[in-house]
Nucleic acid binder design. Sequence first.
DNA 1: ATTTCAGGATTGTTCAACAATAGGACGAGA
DNA 2: TCTCGTCCTATTGTTGAACAATCCTGAAAT
Lengths: 236, 236
Amino acid sequence: MTVAQDGVERLAGDRAELERPPSTAELVAEALRGQIIDGALAPGTRLSEKELFTRLGVSRNTLREAFLLLVHERLLVRRPHHGVSVAKPTVADVIDLYRVRRALELSAVRAAAQAPPGALDAVGAAVREGERAAAAADWKALGTANMRFHAAIAGLTGSQRVAEVMRQLLAEMRLVFHVMAAPREFHEPYLAMNREIHLLLRDGAAERAAERLADYLDVAERQLVDAFAAREADTR
Amino acid sequence: MTVAQDGVERLAGDRAELERPPSTAELVAEALRGQIIDGALAPGTRLSEKELFTRLGVSRNTLREAFLLLVHERLLVRRPHHGVSVAKPTVADVIDLYRVRRALELSAVRAAAQAPPGALDAVGAAVREGERAAAAADWKALGTANMRFHAAIAGLTGSQRVAEVMRQLLAEMRLVFHVMAAPREFHEPYLAMNREIHLLLRDGAAERAAERLADYLDVAERQLVDAFAAREADTR
DNA sequence: ATTTCAGGATTGTTCAACAATAGGACGAGA
DNA sequence: TCTCGTCCTATTGTTGAACAATCCTGAAAT
């Protein structure tokens, strides 16, 4: 193999990462997704087609295509002839989400020994990112770092599909978190757990890391379920 | 509670199952999905928009909406400005699919004790359906029954999201199975394993059922990976 | 106060046109 | 004969507009 062929090989390898310019619908979906997980669009908000496509400067068809993408991600729900609205997760959704998270994340941690190179570093990077955010008292960034931590956990599998499912679940989680009035009190305690899990993984103690993560998920789920129960008792 | 109210309750309960007439795009997607998993549309086939929407008698926008649904299910892949084509799974996809299946199905089996009522019966029904198909030498139906078995396993979680992810994975699996020339030899041996797993679950031996299922998945994956390797060596 | 019915508004679906892009055809030059 | 660059065509991406179907609102009638 010559040096020139080597260069061609590398280009072919990069080809997959060379992202094409996203379509208009994807851009619109991304914009809406950002507003939804930022909380600018509260759960339950009805999204009028007419208002949105005039405001965003895209065609109605393109907007509807973006809606389709987000409905698939469960960030929007569509009621026929009523249009779409921002999803409003229920306590049943919380339980459901944590069931899937347990299956995927615990399986990922237990298989950490076969993780692709660099995957564990991503976990560590997410931990450090969270600590920086906490030090800067940036609670929104702390929540993001926490999401990234769990995405990195899923990344330990090296599986494209696991990563994608996880990405979707975490986007939904952002919606769920909106019921937590105090992001600091909610997210901060998990920083230490994240760090501990990362250290256990680094030392090859996968099973113990899995146990810690299981506790972690149990606690978080309980906390969210309680918050939902309180809110539902409140609004009724 | 009066009898009349009872009737209303029942109507409200049925309301969720009362499926609205599916939209045109969903019908088109369903038709295409059927042709893909039946093998009428071989992996790699390019789908021309013009030809399809004239043949199906729907608008181009509706067809594109159906494409979006199937792209999301990974049954179609879209190359910008090139249109969509039937997905052609690689050996990497097979490995990836089985990783997710292991995580979800094993977790479902281990939690079988908390399964919702009737979920275990669905597993048994799938086993019997497979045995009927084998007795009738209907190998296509046998493959379908096998899919239903694994869907029922996922259903043990009672989780909407697990069920949906599983449904998607199984649709992809249909695509993968196309490389197996002999559906009988491939699917038939798993009948006994399905029955054994069902019996173990019925007896409450969830952990042993999980071990059997893990073996099952290992064998099937290896068989498919070998088949892919043979095909790739063949076509090159 | 309850019911009925008409009006308006919004969404579902289709059609038609233009812009943008990828791939192939074609020819010039070495 | 082979390589390179240019143009051209077919297909897709995007937009705009129209009509049909459905739901919500509110006024009129009992």
